[in-house]
């Protein structure tokens, strides 16, 4: 009986693996995209920056997303210095507005602002943007499957499209076969495709509202020898969010 169960389980595990052999790079990246871009989502996260000198800076923020990542709103809760500052991103972060509560001023930012470090962290606004960037900005190529961080992974190389404004010339991505979540992403220099700038490592994988989610992500900056940890404190998917939330009016609230 035990043998039967074991072989049955083996078949179950092997079947997706066998199917996975058939998946092309485009299909894999599309699945990654689908995982990232749920219809709507809400998250509360803590971002901890560790600087070269070992100092720490912690930020807590809330974020809302709608229309599969097309609309995003981020509002800072902590520290006091940035409390109530908010960022609205529409059209997959092609349109960005920033709100400064003390002056009640809303400033429209051009897409080059995506290259800037988010609150001095190792994440740029581009890194935090919607998963569509993997499809819109890069062409993907499948490399030989590998084990990474103890997970069976697809390995893809994403090369920047000529018309793309991404600040990375290429990405190497390890994607967990079981849930299509990237476990490691390497980001390479804008001008030198051989020069590794940053490495993102995801962990603490859980299923929330039926959707696989990495609750913790660490970005290691090889260039500056710093790191930033992003930890999800709370997350909800496919909740009801109206379009009113993603307006300048809402940004000011």
């Amino acid at each position: 009986m035990k043998k039967l169960l074991a072989s049955g389980l083996m078949v179950l595990l092997l079947v997706p693996a066998a199917f996975s052999q058939e998946l092309t790079a485009d299909e894999i990246i599309q699945k990654v995209n689908d995982q990232f871009n749920t219809e709507t989502s809400y998250g509360k996260s803590k971002m901890t920056i560790v600087t070269t000198s070992g100092q720490k800076r912690t930020f807590v923020q809330e974020s809302w997303s709608k229309d599969r990542g097309e609309k995003n709103l981020v509002r800072y809760l902590e520290p006091r210095r940035v409390k109530d500052q908010a960022v609205l991103m529409l059209n997959h972060a092609d349109d960005i507005w920033m709100f400064f509560p003390r002056t009640q001023r809303v400033r429209k930012l051009a897409s080059h602002a995506k290259k800037q470090k988010m609150q001095g962290s190792d994440f740029s606004y581009e890194d935090m943007g919607s998963g569509d960037a993997f499809i819109d900005d890069f062409t993907s190529k499948r490399l030989e499957d590998e084990q990474k961080e103890g997970q069976d992974c697809y390995k893809l190389e994403l090369i920047r499209k000529q018309e793309s404004s991404s600040s990375y010339s290429r990405l190497i991505m390890w994607i967990i076969k079981e849930n299509f979540l990237p476990v490691v992403i390497e980001y390479y220099d804008d001008n030198d495709p051989a020069y590794l700038l940053k490495t993102m490592v995801a962990s603490d994988f859980r299923v929330i509202d039926g959707i696989p989610t990495s609750m913790k992500v660490v970005m290691f900056n090889q260039n500056d020898n710093t790191q930033t940890e992003m930890e999800l404190l709370e997350v909800k998917y496919n909740i009801t969010l109206t379009d009113d939330l993603f307006t300048e009016r809402s940004l000011k609230k």
Binding site: R107, K108, L109, A110, S111, H112, A113, S165
Partner: peptide, 11 residues
């Protein structure tokens, strides 16, 4: 007005 032209912010 504020927007973007050729990748640069303009206002």
């Amino acid at each position: 007005t504020a927007g973007e032209l050729f990748g640069m912010g303009v206002w």
